[in-house]
């Protein structure tokens, strides 16, 4: 079977997983959430195969154009989510989170995205491509988890303020703690992948570790927003609503770094 077939099967599995997670939202039966988890996990395995096949066929890392990079981001997001769910039992987040993953997969498979594996331009022929992009996207995937749990926090908090209890025991306080855990995984990964590996590679390929290229600046902005999140939280004790809002802004900044910069601003990073 070809990479495209695996990609399609993966896509179907993610949609099914989302469907089961949504059933869980309404039925509140553990069983459907577990089915969602298993389907998403199966999807992750097939997705991994698709990425391996892609790498073998093209002979280079599977994130050199927008299709590949979206697919890889979807893969890292599922990975990040499954880890967080497995560790912290945040079943309710599955339904919302898989919507993001499905959106990424849909975007990747849209006819607007060129799918052919083009040979690598000289600047991308480096093992730093693997390190820089994969670690960065994995970090961003954890920011995506924090984004979903923060939005869920904001809703749960509003509900609790009106005196209504949260269904299925996922309290606002717990969502807040889980957002923080997700950021505390995503932040070091993003720092390492985007900024440190980015600087090392830029130094090797372009001859200067920092060029104030829009993508660099936006990574720095994303990093600063999450630094703000950590400092307001740890030093100034801003838990809860304000913290959640900063996490949401941080994810939007990461999204713009990943997506917006390519289409709206021009610079050195115009590969995909």
């Amino acid at each position: 079977m070809s990479e495209a077939t695996f990609f399609l099967l993966t896509f179907i599995l993610y949609i099914l997983a989302a469907a089961f997670y949504f059933v869980f939202l309404f039925s509140k039966k553990e069983g459907s959430a577990k089915a969602g988890f298993m389907l998403a996990f199966l999807g992750l395995l097939l997705h991994t195969l698709a990425l391996i096949l892609r790498t073998v066929e093209s002979g280079h890392a599977p994130f050199t154009n927008m299709y590949e990079s979206l697919s890889f981001l979807a893969w890292s997001s599922i990975l990040a989510y499954l880890i967080i769910e497995w560790k912290y039992r945040v079943r309710r987040a599955g339904a919302y989170f898989l919507l993001i993953v499905i959106a990424l997969m849909a975007l990747a498979s849209s006819p607007l995205m060129p799918k052919e594996a083009a040979p690598l331009v000289p600047a991308l022929q480096s093992y730093w491509l693997w390190l820089h992009v994969s670690v960065t996207l994995l970090g961003e995937a954890f920011f995506a988890v924090a984004f979903i749990t923060s939005i869920m926090y904001l809703r749960a908090e509003a509900r609790e303020r009106k005196g209504r209890a949260t269904p299925t025991g996922l309290s606002a306080q717990r969502l807040d703690a889980i957002s923080y855990r997700a950021v505390s995984v995503g932040f070091p990964l993003f720092t390492l992948g985007a900024l440190v590996f980015g600087m090392v590679w830029a130094h090797k390929a372009w001859g200067s570790y920092w060029s104030w290229d829009p993508k660099e600046v936006w990574s720095l902005i994303t990093w600063f927003v999450f630094a703000l999140y950590l400092h307001t939280r740890i030093i100034m004790g801003w838990k809860g609503r304000r913290s959640a809002v900063i996490a949401v802004i941080g994810f939007l900044a990461a999204l713009f770094t990943y997506f917006g910069v390519n289409y709206l601003l021009s610079g050195l990073h115009s590969y995909v």
């Binding site: 104030w212 030093i235 910069v261």
Partner: peptide, 20 residues
């Protein structure tokens, strides 16, 4: 104070955005 650090961070974020 850390408060100043927060203010500076926000200022740096805003001016960096402006530069892009």
């Amino acid at each position: 104070s850390v408060r100043l650090a927060i203010v500076l961070l926000i200022l740096i974020i805003c001016s960096s955005i402006l530069g892009t």
